[in-house]
Design a protein around this nucleic acid. Structure first.
Lengths: 243, 243
DNA sequence: CCTTTCCACTTGTTTATACAAGTTCTGTTT
DNA sequence: AAACAGAACTTGTATAAACAAGTGGAAAGG
C-alpha cells in the first residue's frame, strides 16, 4: 500500500497537544500549512485530524480553523474506554503496575447460562476464565472472560496470568478489530465482595462486551467489574448536524 | 458545498441493517457495487460505511468484504451514548414518553463549588438547573445542568421543562458540536434518594460531561444520575493496528 | 465614522485516478 | 490428486483537483 502516512502524523500532533505545545483554546496550523510540513495532501492531513477529533482532542470550525479542546487535567481517569485497550496496556500507559491472579481457568462446553451471558451457542467449547486484577494490595477489577476455543486454541492458565491479548495477537497471529461494550452499575455479588477491595461500596461498575476478530467471528465475551472509586470511563462524541 | 451525499447513503444502509435486510454475518455489496447504485465515487461510499463501522454496525475485512456484525437484540439499552443525544431525543427514538420536573432553576454567579464541579471560572454568571426525568411514575434520572449565561441567554424555567437543546439550537441558532463524558458509579446522595425511584438501590450510574458549541466555548456542564436498572450505555470501539 | 462589499483565508464535500495488499477461485502444472 | 501460479475480485491508502461555504479583515463606498 502507499504506506500509512497518517499514523505518524496523528501520533505527532497528538503528542504535541498532550505535551502542551498547543493548549486548549489554541488553533492548530491550517490544513494547508500541514500539507507543506508533512509533504502530503490535504486528505491525509484531514484523516489524521479527524482521528484526533473523534478522540475528543480537536474541534474543527468551518471557516475558522481547528481548535484544541483537550486539557491534560481531564485525565482524572485511570482507564479510558476510547478504543479497545487491554488492562495491561492501559496500566502501562499510566505507568501503573498491575498484578493478575487467576481464580478460575477451565475448559468447558457452553451451557445455557454461558450462552445467555456470552452469546455463544449452546454446545460450543469455550475457555472460562475468572481473574482478579490488583494494583498493589487493592483488588480493583474482577474479570470474567469466555473465549471460543476453536479460535483461541492453546490458552493456558499461565497465559491468563500474563496477557491473553498478547498471546492471541502475537503467537496466534490473530487480529482483534471491533468490540461493542455495555456499561452498567450493578449490585455487588458475593464473588465481588470476596475478591474485590470494595471498602464500604456494595456496588460495582460493570463493562461487558463482545469482541470480534478480523474474520468477523465473535470469539470473546468479556465482563469487567470495577471498584467504583478506581475507575471511570471517558467517551467523546460528536453531535451530528441536526438539520 | 457539493452537497452531502454520504448522509442519505449512511441512513439508508443503516436502516437496511436495522430492518434485517442484511443480518449479522452477511456481507454487504462491494464498494464498487454501491458506487453504481448510488452513482457516486468510492470515497463517498467509504465515508458512509466508515460511519457505520464506528457505530459498531460493520466490520470491514481487507480483501474479503464488509461484514454486518449488528444484531437487533443488542438493543437492550434504553439510551445509547454513541453521539450527543438529549434525553428527549433518545426517548422519542425509543417511543417512550418522558416527563420532566424542574426542581431548581436559578441564575447565579459561579462560586468555588460550581467552578470545581463544572469547570467554569469563578465569578461567571450561570444558570443552575436541577431536573427529574420520569417515565410514567418512575423517576429514572436526576439531571444537573450548569449553563454559561453569556452563551445561553434567555433560558427560563419553562424552557427547562421542555427541551433546552431545542431552544439553543432552534431559537438561539446555536450549534452543539462536541462533548466529552465521564461515566462512573457513585453512592446515592440524599437528593438521589429523595427524588429518584431507587427501589432497593443505594447507588447511581453517573454520566457527567462538558459540552462545547461551534465557537469552541465550553458552555455547559451536565451531570445525569441514573437509576441503575433503567439505563445502560453502549459504546463501540475499533482497535487500532497494534504494530 | 459607519456600513457594505469583496477578497483571501479557513474547513467541508465530491470526483477521479492510481496503486498496494489481502482473499478467493480457477486453471495449469507436477 | 495435490501444489502452485495467476487472475479477478475485495478493501486500504494516497494523490490531485475542483468547488462549496463559513469567517474575518481589508478596501471601498456612503
Amino acid at each position: 500500500m502507499p504506506q500509512q502516512k497518517y499514523e505518524p502524523i496523528y501520533q505527532e500532533i497528538k503528542r504535541e497537544i498532550e505535551t502542551g505545545v498547543y493548549k486548549a483554546g489554541d488553533f492548530l496550523p491550517s490544513e494547508n500549512a500541514y500539507t507543506e510540513k508533512y509533504n502530503c495532501t490535504r486528505n491525509t492531513i484531514r484523516r489524521a485530524l479527524s482521528m484526533l477529533t473523534s478522540d475528543g482532542y480537536l474541534l474543527p470550525q468551518h471557516g475558522r480553523g481547528v481548535q484544541v479542546i483537550y486539557s491534560p487535567k481531564d485525565l482524572r481517569s485511570l482507564f479510558s474506554i476510547g478504543g479497545i485497550e487491554s488492562l495491561g496496556e492501559a496500566a502501562k500507559r499510566n505507568q501503573i503496575v498491575i498484578t493478575t491472579k487467576v481464580i478460575t481457568f477451565k475448559e468447558m462446553v457452553a451451557d445455557e447460562s454461558i450462552s445467555m451471558m456470552a452469546g455463544f451457542d449452546i454446545g460450543e467449547e469455550v475457555y472460562f476464565i475468572e481473574r482478579v486484577r490488583k494494583t498493589g494490595k487493592k483488588a480493583i477489577i474482577f474479570d470474567t472472560n469466555v473465549f471460543l476455543k476453536s479460535e483461541t486454541n492453546g490458552l493456558t492458565k499461565e497465559i491468563a496470568e500474563k496477557s491473553v491479548y498478547e498471546y492471541l495477537e502475537h503467537d496466534l497471529g490473530m487480529t482483534i478489530t471491533t468490540s461493542r461494550r455495555r456499561i452498567t452499575a450493578q449490585k455487588a455479588t458475593k464473588k465481588d465482595m470476596k475478591y474485590l477491595s470494595l471498602g464500604s461500596f456494595d456496588f460495582v461498575l460493570t463493562v461487558e462486551g463482545q469482541v470480534f476478530n478480523s474474520r468477523g467471528v465473535m470469539f470473546e465475551y468479556t465482563q469487567s467489574r470495577h471498584v467504583p472509586d478506581q475507575v471511570c470511563f471517558i467517551e467523546s462524541a460528536v453531535r451530528q448536524r441536526s438539520k
